[in-house]
């Protein structure tokens, strides 16, 4: 798996973020009463320190030759190298959609959809070549997703009296 090339990229992303925080910190009031520190002091000092340490880390990585080189591929991997990346992206995206739909669709429907799609994505991507998708298993998964979301809803709302989003139809 490629690791260290994106190590350099991650350093750059963190550097950009720290730079942005530093730039924003210049808009904060820099005066303080009674010889104490101003509200801008900590944000400026910390973001500057992050920038400095990241630069040192990058230089050290370059000198050691670890910043831009590739790691060895995983011999035990059962899937092509792109599969984990796609799976990671799909699950992360699914989480964003889950958060977006939680209030409009209510807890039960959005959670059932999330559970079904999350397991389905991982199952489809981990499927061996030529392996077919059995309808029975899809139905089982749908039943599992629906049962779990309703059960958790009841446990949380009745058992712990925690308010979860609903669409107001039959109490769910």
């Amino acid at each position: 798996m490629v690791k260290t090339r994106s190590d350099a990229l991650f350093h750059l992303v963190l550097l950009a973020l720290a730079g942005w925080f530093l730039q924003q910190a210049w808009h904060l009031p820099a005066n303080a009463a009674g010889g104490s520190l101003s509200p801008a002091f900590f944000p400026r000092a910390i973001s500057s320190a992050i920038v400095l340490l990241l630069l040192i880390s990058m230089v050290r990585g370059l000198i050691a030759g670890t910043l831009l080189t590739r790691d060895a591929t995983n011999e035990e991997a059962t899937a092509p190298a792109w599969v984990p990346v796609v799976a990671w992206g799909a699950v992360a995206l699914l989480l964003v959609f889950y958060a977006m739909l939680l209030e409009p669709l209510g807890y039960v429907i959005s959670t059932a959809l999330f559970l079904f799609l999350c397991v389905a994505i991982v199952s489809v991507l981990s499927r061996q070549r030529g392996e077919s998708i059995a309808i029975g298993r899809v139905l089982m998964l749908a039943l599992f997703a629906a049962t779990v979301s309703v059960a958790i809803f009841l446990i949380f709302s009745v058992g712990f009296e925690i308010v979860l989003p609903t669409i107001g139809v039959m109490g769910v």
């Binding site: 964003v96 209030e103 999330f114 999350c118 397991v119 991982v122 599992f144 308010v163």
Partner: peptide, 27 residues
């Protein structure tokens, strides 16, 4: 493992949302 991963993520979202019903905290 795939069922477990999906269930844990669900509990993460619900756990954070349930505290003060603020979707911003989920993001």
């Amino acid at each position: 493992r795939k069922l477990l991963m999906a269930l844990i993520l669900m509990f993460c979202v619900i756990g954070v949302y349930a505290v003060d019903a603020d979707i911003f905290n989920v993001y």
